[in-house]
Design a protein around this nucleic acid. Structure first.
Length: 419
RNA sequence: GGAGGAUUCGCAUAGCGGCCGAGUGCGCACGCUUGGAAAGCGUGUAUAGGGCAACCUAUCGAGGGUUCAAAUCCCUCAUCCUCCGCCA
């Protein structure tokens, strides 16, 4: 949610931001208009209420005929107050609905444009040249007894899979490596709930445009999270965090559930795009002035992970039209996938500034008062895509796969052999 | 799933339909006292919104209702605790 005071004072900035995202600019003026109506309605109600409070007191003090007369007036006033109050509530709700439609204000540094208009910040590592025909992860997964998509489909439908044998072991190794490096970096490890209530989902902004990708359990009115960003962000909902504890960093490990509606025909092969996967997510609550630096740090931790996996990748600055509504800037890391001869997204980090915290009512207190914190998130490792990258990049001609040195202590082997 | 109890200002508690935005204790901050500290004494100590100054308004788990007036009465819901049942 945008700060209404900021919008009042800088409508042009908000207009430009909406335009840059390719979103509705006219909302800005609608918000300004309704905000005036809102304040007028509020003032009217408050004046009447003040009058009523006074009158009520004199009723209490009065006696006999005098009291009867006052009561007469008070009754009349009470209906007026009720009317003014419901008008106020109505306008406030309307105003809130409109404000909620506005996305976060873009970082001026974010590239403007659509999905294809990202800016490549850097390339790290060089895609390997194979002296044999590289196999894709589905084939390798079969040869190693690591991934079983056929049985996944049989049991759970399309975009489902089993990780078996070294596949399962690889997940444990990745998670262990991720959590132990997060610990070293000062994160608090967290295993969050993956079943959350509407307030948590709503507050983190996943019931907007992203709603169709969220699983909802109607009978109990709870949602399956698509990322542990949701329970991690909502963890401190309605709290005032101690300023001297910021930044507060959490590394959440959880399953993630995504309906993947509207992706028919996209990445149908293998485990690049699936309905359920596990992920270690970094989440940071920090001082708004620190948000940009924190964002760089999250990106660095993501790079460290890719480096440790010895996988070539590039970092992109995601364009305005492709940002989530909460993010003011987003960096994606894309790993080189040999059989696709392309870089594919494996991690992503967003700076949500105070946008998300304002919705969730997460604040901190310092000398100037109580203000919204900034929230940032970043993927440390999303298991299936990392498995794809590791298998494909480190394969040998016979289908065996070399284990990156960083993972060897967790796996007790240097190489995955065919089964 | 059933039966009871609870939910008040950081914590613990008091609270009669109007004198309650709310008392007390602890904690915290500042001051006095002291060589210094403790104790003691004094003062202060929620959040949000509107004017942005005085001030006003809202908030006693949430949402409704009764009333001129609700922390206080009624209804619905949520959470926690105890007991019973069921499942592990």
């Amino acid at each position: 949610m945008i700060d209404i005071k900021f919008l009042r004072e800088n409508p042009d900035v908000v207009r430009a931001s909406q335009k840059g995202r390719g979103e509705d600019v006219s909302i800005v003026d609608k918000v300004i208009a309704i905000d005036e109506v809102r304040r007028a309605a509020l003032e009217k109600f408050e004046t009447l209420r003040a009058e009523q409070n006074l009158l009520s007191k004199s009723v209490g003090a009065a006696k006999g005929d005098e009291k009867a007369a006052l009561l007469e007036n008070a009754k009349e006033l009470a209906t007026k107050v009720k009317e003014a109050d419901s008008k106020r509530a109505e306008v406030e709700e309307e105003s809130k609905q409109l404000i909620m439609q506005l996305s976060n204000i873009l970082d001026p540094a974010a590239p403007i444009g659509g999905e294809a208009d990202f800016v490549v910040i850097e390339h790290v590592g060089t895609p390997r040249t194979f002296d044999f025909e590289p196999k894709d992860h589905v084939e390798l997964g079969k040869l190693l007894g690591a991934i079983d998509t056929e049985r996944g489909a049989k049991v759970a439908g399309s975009r489902s899979y089993y990780l078996t044998g070294v596949g399962a072991m690889l997940e444990f190794a990745l998670v262990n490596y991720a959590i132990s490096s997060a610990l070293k970096a000062g994160f608090t490890p967290v295993i969050p709930p993956v079943l959350v209530n509407p307030a948590a989902m709503e507050g983190t902004g996943f019931l907007g445009q992203a709603a169709e990708n969220v699983y909802h359990l109607e009978k109990d009115d709870v949602y399956l999270v698509g990322t542990s960003e949701v329970p991690l962000a909502a963890m401190h909902m309605d709290e005032v965090l101690p300023a001297d504890k910021l930044p507060m960093r959490y590394a959440g490990y959880s399953s993630c559930f995504r309906r993947e509606a509207g992706t028919y025909g996209k990445d149908t092969r293998g485990i690049i795009r699936v309905h359920q996967f596990d992920k270690v997510e970094m989440f940071s609550f920090c001082h708004p002035d620190q948000a940009q630096e924190e964002h760089k740090r999250l990106l660095q931790w993501e790079k460290d992970f890719l480096n440790a996996m010895e996988i070539p990748y590039r970092v992109i600055d995601v364009a305005s039209g492709d940002l989530g509504s909460s993010a003011n800037r987003k960096f994606d890391i894309e790993a080189w996938i040999p059989t696709q001869e392309a870089y594919r997204e494996v991690t992503s980090t967003s700076n949500c500034t105070e946008f998300q915290a304002r919705r969730l009512n997460i604040r901190f207190k310092d000398a100037d008062g109580t203000k919204a914190v900034a929230t940032l998130n970043g993927t440390l490792v999303a298991i299936p895509r990392m498995i794809v990258a590791i298998l494909e990049n480190h394969q040998n001609a016979d289908g065996s796969v070399n284990v990156p040195a960083a993972l060897q202590p967790f796996l007790g082997t240097e190489r995955f052999e065919l089964v």
